[in-house]
Design a protein around this nucleic acid. Sequence first.
DNA 1: GCTTGTTAGTTACAAAAACAACTATTACAA
DNA 2: TTGTAATAGTTGTTTTTGTAACTAACAAGC
Lengths: 149, 149
Amino acid sequence: MPDDNFQLNQFLPYLLNQAAEASSLEFQQIYKDRYGMLRTEWRVLFHLGLYGRMTASEIGARANMHKTKISRAVQKLTERRFVTRARDDADRRVEHLALTAQGQAAYDDLHQVAQRYDWDLTADLNEAERAALKKMLVKLSGKRPAGFT
Amino acid sequence: MPDDNFQLNQFLPYLLNQAAEASSLEFQQIYKDRYGMLRTEWRVLFHLGLYGRMTASEIGARANMHKTKISRAVQKLTERRFVTRARDDADRRVEHLALTAQGQAAYDDLHQVAQRYDWDLTADLNEAERAALKKMLVKLSGKRPAGFT
DNA sequence: GCTTGTTAGTTACAAAAACAACTATTACAA
DNA sequence: TTGTAATAGTTGTTTTTGTAACTAACAAGC
């Protein structure tokens, strides 16, 4: 049953927000300072870097990002020559997005930073704990509590 | 050492954000629908409900919220008669904030919902896991990874 | 062929957040 | 005192986000 002396830092959505904000801060600073990117732009960059050529919709589906966010992020990224767009021959509504050499370089750099950063964040956890934490978070990411629609 | 095949859903800040967003969605809908509140307003309400009379700065310190956010949240909450402000006699810069009866009622209601909601979110964890998760999140909330300043 | 509906992506406008500059009050030191 | 710095909170302006309406291209039924 629910805990009777409820506190704000026992409320998962609140806790997750706090942890997310705190843990993003320094990383955010890095991609902002080095490449002038916003969170949306960083995310698009990483999706292209990790999964290769994709369309905006595919990124949206994977990242749970609204298409307008992606549209604007892609616009900025193409303006700054990190990303190229190519119309699909068969279906001309579709655009295939891919990293330029410059985009790839930025991705490689930030990828390294992220990896190291992630490691440092969880430095005091052992392998099992780290894995357990991430697994729970993945589960929570896809979940809606029952009975609250 | 850092994991070599890095994926986006192994990057903690990203994961935390996804989990936070997903897990907040339905709850957000509730306080928005029932009381027309924003996240900032909900947070102020909960701080007052949980810890009693406080000043804006105290809330800011606890919640890691910028003072302008709080100022505007308090303004809305007083307009809607959820909160009252009272100048401090000794130091007239300071305002003491407190819930009205109506504010208390809203808090009581949402508090119940939150408790239940939180429980449902973690329904498939046992007590130990639930506690471990929250403990890790609290730790992450206060933490900045070393070497990234 | 022509409707009607759907999908990919963009654009325009409104809501919210971030950031900087401001007022009012207190503290404190010369 | 009085001048300088600090603190509590507000206001104004710029960015970013959210939402809805839009264009263009395709699909399917008739």
